[in-house]
Structure formats: structure tokens, C-alpha cells
């Protein structure tokens, strides 16, 4: 059998290396019965069309952010809600909790898409950062900041609430956009700073921990059910080991990231930025939405429950 895996990332990114590891392990564990073919760089379409191909079993695996599933269950957007979660563990508990899992079941019923393995196993980048032209020392500096975001109502509303002036730009135009002053700041996972070269145009970098991110291995359910139990087991093991390998690469990169960035001329890194005021300000935002009945049912309770676990 051939399992086709589509990815948005380049082969030499840490994600790309993890997918290659997965393909090698699957070959080994299934004695070559299953051939995992990797399509990097969105070769077979934008993520939105990849999701449609996944649902139709044209391809079988598409590891990426879980938010692409929000097409079938709106609540899933809140896995990337800015400043809603304390840390990665809190977020992991939420994702593996009852409410979020029930959302994933809806997706499985409607779209034939399930998740391979445990989502939090493979973090997508260590933490989120904010890069700006002028240094940001306190939360107040965000007031009036022209910030780039992607087209997502929740993200735009949240940053507007924090006082920033949000401008929507495609990811590929961000570098140019900062360079020309259309925006003066951009949020990014730590790992993308180097590859996208954002520090060349926005050299002031702070760690925000805006929200945790992980790679969800979305897969077609019919393809999964067609496997023998042994093959399913081989896949699961390969996933767990590839995810562990990805974490390893990530840790290595994180260990040197600060030093690597500071070695670049004019770059100013502050990974000890206090995001407390931002979290506090965002709590007003979520409370107001909850009061207005605009949040998915049970969300606030589930977030709280995940915290005390």
C-alpha cells in the first residue's frame, strides 16, 4: 500500500525530518508493506484543498495545525485562542479532555478524518514570539502597534482587544510588508524566525507564549480501517517515535536559538517578557464573549477543568 503524506514544510525543516523518520520507521515495522510517500512544500495543493483530498482518501495523512478541522467543528478554533492557556501542559489537558475529543468525533463522522497518535506528542515549535521594529518592553507598547495576522476572526478580535492595529497579510508577504512599513510587527513560532528571516526586518524579539501549538497527524479513517491490527500498531509506534525525534530536534534548536539570534547584528532578544498583563487583559475579552453567549458551550468550564487536573 502507498500512504501519501502532505506537508506544508520543507524537507530540511525539523518537521520535514520527522516525517522522513516516520516513513523510514513504517517501512521497517511493516517489512515494506506500507510505503509512505512524502509531499513537502504544499506540492499537491494549499492546506485547504489538502484537507478536502484527505477527506476523500485521495491522500491519507496531512500533519499540520488542528485548526484546519474547524471547517467541520467551529470550537476547534479555540485550540489556538490567544492567551487562553497557561502553558503547554494546561493546553495538552484541554486537547485530550472530553469536550475537545467530542469535537474531534464530530469531525470524524462528518469528514472521515481522525488523528493518528496523541496530538501533544509533537509540539510545533517551542513557543510563540512577537517580532517588532521598535522594542516592546511592556504590554502597553502593544497599543497602536501595526501587527500582521492571518485571516481569522478570533485572532484579529483578540489582538484588537489588546490594542494593536491588526493588518491581514499572507504569510509569504510578511517579510516584504515589514520591510516597507505596511506592518511593524509580526507574531511567529520561534522556529520560523530563522527560516523566514523576520529578524532582518523586525529585530526586536520577545517571547509571548500566545498559545501552544502542536502537529496533529490528520488521517483518513477509511485508509486506517483498511489496515491490519499489526499494521495499525506499526503506524502508531512509528508516529510516537517520529514525534519523539521531532521533540529532540526542537530541543536542540531551542538550546541555541537565543544565541544564534543574538549573534546577528542589531537583533535584540527578550525571552523573559512578562505576558501576565496580556493574559489578564484577555480574560476580560473571554469573559465578555462568554457573557454574550459567543463562546462554544462548555469551553470555559473545560479550560478551567484542564487547569486543575
Amino acid at each position: 500500500d502507498t500512504w501519501r503524506l502532505s506537508s506544508m514544510m520543507t524537507p530540511d525543516s525539523f518537521e520535514g525530518q520527522a516525517y522522513q523518520k516516520f516513513a523510514d520507521l513504517v517501512e521497517e515495522y511493516t517489512d515494506g508493506d506500507i510505503d509512505v510517500r512524502i509531499y513537502p512544500n504544499e506540492q499537491i495543493g494549499s492546506m485547504d484543498s489538502v484537507v478536502e483530498q484527505l477527506s476523500q482518501n485521495v491522500i491519507q495523512l496531512a500533519p499540520s495545525g488542528i485548526s484546519f478541522m474547524s471547517r467541520w467543528e467551529e470550537g476547534i478554533t479555540y485550540a489556538a485562542a490567544p492567551f487562553l492557556f497557561d502553558d503547554y501542559d494546561h493546553w495538552s489537558n484541554f486537547v485530550n479532555g472530553e469536550l475537545f475529543q467530542s469535537w474531534l468525533e464530530t469531525v470524524e463522522e462528518e469528514a472521515n478524518i481522525a488523528i493518528l497518535g496523541n496530538i501533544p506528542d509533537m509540539p510545533r515549535g517551542t513557543f510563540r514570539t512577537l517580532l517588532s521594529e521598535t522594542p516592546i518592553e511592556t504590554a502597553d507598547d502593544i497599543e497602536g502597534l501595526k501587527i500582521r495576522q492571518y485571516q481569522n476572526d478570533l485572532i484579529i478580535d483578540a489582538w484588537t482587544h489588546l490594542g494593536a492595529e491588526v493588518r491581514v497579510l499572507p504569510w509569504g508577504e510578511v517579510y516584504d510588508g515589514v520591510n516597507r512599513g505596511i506592518v511593524s510587527a509580526v507574531t511567529s513560532p520561534a522556529e520560523a524566525i530563522m527560516s523566514m528571516r523576520f529578524y532582518e526586518v523586525a529585530p526586536n524579539i520577545i517571547r509571548t507564549d500566545e498559545y501552544p501549538q502542536a502537529v496533529s497527524w490528520m488521517m483518513n479513517v477509511n485508509a486506517w480501517n483498511a489496515l491490519t491490527p499489526e499494521q495499525q500498531d506499526a503506524m502508531s509506534r512509528a508516529h510516537a517515535e517520529a514525534a519523539a525525534y521531532g521533540r529532540e530536534l526542537l530541543d536542540e534548536a531551542a538550546a541555541t536559538l537565543k544565541a544564534d539570534l543574538e549573534a546577528e547584528e542589531g537583533v535584540n532578544v527578550n525571552f523573559d517578557f512578562d505576558n501576565g498583563p496580556l493574559v489578564a487583559k484577555m480574560q476580560e475579552f473571554y469573559s465578555a464573549r462568554e457573557a454574550a453567549g459567543e463562546l462554544p458551550e462548555g469551553l470555559v468550564a473545560a479550560v478551567d477543568a484542564a487547569r486543575t487536573e
Binding site: E52, S55, Q56, S70, R71, W72, A111, Q151, N152, D153, I156
Partner: peptide, 11 residues
């Protein structure tokens, strides 16, 4: 294709 596209667009 149409059956897969019943969700609302962004914004």
C-alpha cells in the same frame, strides 16, 4: 466538492 464546503468562509 460542494458537500465538503458547507462551512462558512473566514470573515
Amino acid at each position: 466538492l460542494l458537500k465538503l464546503q458547507t462551512a462558512p468562509m473566514d470573515s
